[in-house]
């Protein structure tokens, strides 16, 4: 089970995150959970929607960038956030992601809103393998 923390001293107007996962799949799932929790209180989202996402990128960090960007895009286009994700990353060239997303519509009457995330930046952006699994650092524009 992955972990994520806010790096309080970096990019004070935005939100810098450090995310760790036991595996690459776990890293991507944990990052999705972090984004959801930054945007809304997940307990106030009824899980009524299922989506699938497929992505391809030339490098693992760009796949991670595209994955987070996709979740922010869906928040705006469909007004949906996802409280649970199942991600499968294929470690081959190019890197591929297949994900199943479970979540719901943002309903201002029932959903406790937090920050309206704008984008994923490349400032101090890093995705790396560690002895314990995988770690990412990313600054989200708020």
């Amino acid at each position: 089970m992955g972990r994520w923390t806010v790096l309080e001293e970096i990019a004070v107007a935005d939100c810098a995150l450090e995310i760790e996962g036991d595996s690459l799949d776990d890293l991507f799932e944990t990052a999705a959970r972090a984004l959801c929790e930054l945007m809304v209180d997940p307990a106030t989202v009824a899980p009524t929607v299922e989506r699938t996402v497929s992505l391809v990128a030339g490098a693992v960090d760009l796949l991670f960038y595209d994955w987070l960007s996709e979740l922010i895009f869906l928040k705006d286009r469909d007004r949906e956030v996802f409280i649970r994700t199942q991600v499968r990353v294929t470690t081959a060239s190019p890197w591929r992601l297949a994900a199943r997303l479970e979540g719901g519509s943002i309903d201002p009457e029932h959903t406790a809103l937090r920050a309206d995330l704008k984008a994923v930046t490349l400032h101090r952006f890093a995705v790396e393998e560690t002895g314990m699994g995988w770690r990412a650092r990313v600054v989200i524009d708020i």
């Binding site: 705006d76 704008k118 984008a119």
Partner: peptide, 12 residues
């Protein structure tokens, strides 16, 4: 989101 996406597209 319109501007955010344009910036994301071109940054990439």
């Amino acid at each position: 989101g319109f501007g955010h996406q344009i910036a994301t597209d071109y940054l990439r």
